[in-house]
Amino acid sequence: MTALFPGRPTAVPILALGDTLLVSLQGELHDGMAEQLQQDISRRIADSGAVGVIIDISGVEIVDSFLGRVLAEIAASAGLLAAGTVVAGMRPAVAITLVELGLTLPGLTTALDVERARELLAQAAEPGTWDRCQRGT
């Protein structure tokens, strides 16, 4: 995938599933691609009126403070556009490393996989429940 062409950043595709946007990150993500993705998601939410964003990171081998910040910012700006964001499928080794790094991303809602993320967003579709299903609040 993108890892085969380290010199050639490509855009990350955004899939629409009903009123939810699904982004599946794979392998190496260049800083530029991540920043591009952040802008693309905001635009897609505004254009489509999506109420949920799922970022599947099960294919991501490392999350450093840069990508961590991008994920947190995507969630924050999606929140301003009234869409909930769930980060799904973080690998155990990545989670351990992030905690050790000091990045616990408290504002981020997480799920084990995309299916669970959809369940969380479906629960949130009932008015007023989103805040409740966000952990740590």
Binding site: E61, I62, V63, D64, S65, P92, I96, E100
Partner: peptide, 13 residues
């Protein structure tokens, strides 16, 4: 695997 991930993340930072 965990050690690899830690070192690669440190290298990235």
């Amino acid at each position: 695997l965990v050690q690899q991930t830690k070192l690669v993340t440190a290298a990235s930072e």
